[in-house]
Design a protein around this nucleic acid. Structure first.
Lengths: 217, 217
DNA sequence: ATATTTTTTTAGCCTCGTCTAAACTTTTAT
DNA sequence: ATAAAAGTTTAGACGAGGCTAAAAAAATAT
């Protein structure tokens, strides 16, 4: 049985490791979890002793098979609860992250299976992120941040990174939600802002916003 | 903000204080929480310092207004989640207690209000226990354990005390669930077992069972 | 190649919640 | 009324998780 803290570290390390091919560093974890490097080092030793991560002093960590499976389980629970909050309790998508951060630690496999069924076995959460199945299998689709694409791109928004409520409220207002079609018209060089078209409306998006919009490629 | 442990102590103390007119004693709490008296004493000091209980060394505790309100809030959450698990996720009533013990500590007032609405503002949980409203008002109805009544009694089961899964499974099997009509036919003196009628069927109930069946009076 | 800066780890301390063992109080029995 | 028993509290310890300050290692600069 994992403690809440262990689950949170594992989830963070897993998230930081996805994409990057290198080991996850102590300071990255500390920054991401808003804690201190010394605290992270302490926890890394514990997680390593329990075989959830492989840890080489000064050179960072990576999750083991065992650790990845635990991390994906926490992520599965988080995303199922977010889906529940939005679909059943009618929360807005910008309000659910903090609550799901608590609910993800509830320990009852049968509860999660029944919740999954109650929700109709959803494959993505309200932000478009894929929900791992009960074996930890996660269905990824080819996607890139809008910032990486060239003018002329047309496609659909697949997901929105970052769970900041302000960003999500804004995206909701302009209609930039998962599933929505979007076209990249042009890129402004000096501030890297993007001119896009959503629902036949032209909108300029700052880089801070557009780097969080993931689209199908 | 209360910790999980503080919430659990407060809930237990409140439950033990209901009915009994005297102060709740250290050993009662320890037994009820399956912990040691020394641990209880430590926590009583903390809860007393925070004004959730009034505590007189060696003579026991009682909850303050403040403490009662917190206890009722935890109980409200527990019973709403139990209702959710049974009504929406189709759990059996004997399976929900442990899961609700975890869910009751989720801290989000708005979540609980939305859950309450989603469930249609229920007034009792699956075991017939009343659900306090968001002001901590609890609707009690006159009820007594079946063991306290005389042969000839006819009425309805209002609630079932104790959350033991074995007991609940048995009660479910014989149809002794809240709302069901029940008649007390006779009382066997030597072992205090009761002959009752439920659904036109005659059943003999041991004292261990019948003391947990609460009926309207 | 050495010195400086950055990153990471260690050492030591803190709070929370738990425990055992020993020391009190209070209650009960003689 | 006093001795024994029962109940409660204190003292001291521990693990989990966090912190600050200092030491050590790695990366970067000169």
């Amino acid at each position: 049985m994992l403690t809440f803290a262990e689950e949170n570290y594992l989830k963070t390390i897993y998230h930081l490791s996805v994409g990057g091919s290198k080991d996850v560093l102590t300071n990255q974890i500390a920054e991401s979890m808003k804690t201190k490097a010394a605290s992270v080092t302490d926890m890394l030793k514990k997680l390593s002793a329990k075989n959830f991560i492989s840890y080489e002093k000064y050179y960072g960590v990576r999750v083991t098979k065992h650790g990845k499976s635990e991390a994906l389980n926490v992520i599965r629970k988080h995303r199922l609860w977010e889906t529940f909050l939005v679909q059943k309790l009618r929360f807005n998508w910008d309000e659910v992250h903090e609550i799901a951060e608590q609910l993800e630690h509830i320990n009852s496999p049968i509860l999660i299976e029944k919740l999954d069924e109650f929700l109709g076995f959803p494959t993505t959460d309200p932000h478009g992120e894929p929900i791992p199945d009960h074996n930890g299998k996660i269905k990824t689709q080819p996607q890139q941040p809008l910032t990486d694409l060239a003018p002329g791109y047309r496609g659909a928004i697949t997901a929105v990174k970052d769970s900041d409520s302000g960003l999500l409220k804004y995206l909701d207002k302009i209609g930039a939600v998962p599933g929505k079609r979007i076209a990249l018209i042009s890129k402004e060089e000096y501030d890297e802002s993007l001119e896009v078209e959503i629902d036949t409306k032209r909108i300029s998006l700052s880089k801070a916003v557009s780097k969080n919009i993931l689209v199908a490629v």
